[in-house]
């Protein structure tokens, strides 16, 4: 499932050996075990919880292992408003995550400030974080978050680097 076999030794080895590239195997593993770090600061976090619960069940996509330590996660889900006081905290959490790491900006507030065009609210976390996938909506439905996780999975399968790595290179 999802593993692109480069060659198959049918006949010669009775189908017990497959050949592929190491990147593809590693990416296959990464894609199916994305461990999210939830950064829920507002109502989007409620939808994120619904996505993880039994009805929508994000574990079907291998992402049910929510880690509340950034050091054990590789997918940051920013779901909610980020104020100027919160942004240094969020940046510090992102910095603590091991590479490779991906970022989902969930909902209107995280992506552009939403309706809160005020003195204290960050107008889009992508000013300070490399965001891989944006989700529109206020708040987005769980299906939207699932779609975003699947888009991250597609990026990983295609061998694309996370935005954060691209920025460094």
């Amino acid at each position: 499932m999802g593993l692109d076999f480069v060659g198959r030794g049918v006949g010669e080895t009775d189908g017990n050996i497959i050949t592929t590239s190491i990147e593809k195997v590693v990416n296959w593993g990464r894609k199916n075990s994305l461990w999210p770090m939830p950064f829920g600061t507002a109502c989007c976090a409620i939808e994120m919880m619904a996505t993880l619960a039994s009805k929508y069940d994000l574990s079907r996509f291998g992402s049910e292992a929510i880690r509340f330590s950034p050091r054990q996660s590789d997918l940051l889900i920013v779901s909610g408003r980020i104020s100027i006081k919160m942004m240094p905290v969020l940046k510090r959490i992102y910095d603590q995550m091991p590479d490779p790491k991906w970022v989902i900006s969930m909902g209107a507030c995280a992506s552009c400030g939403g309706v809160f065009d005020t003195y204290t609210l960050i107008q889009g976390v992508d000013q300070f974080l490399p965001v891989d996938v944006y989700i529109p909506g206020c708040p987005p439905r769980p299906e939207d978050l699932i779609d975003a996780v699947m888009q991250v999975q597609q990026k990983i399968t295609s061998g694309a680097s996370p935005k954060g790595v691209e920025a460094v290179v």
Binding site: I84, K85, M87, P88, K91, D117, T118, Y119, T120, L121, I122, Q123, F128
Partner: peptide, 16 residues
């Protein structure tokens, strides 16, 4: 309402 530019000039390094 939109502040005096704090959104762009806030202190990033300070542990507030």
């Amino acid at each position: 309402l939109r502040g005096r530019g704090e959104r762009e000039r806030f202190n990033f390094d300070k542990q507030n």
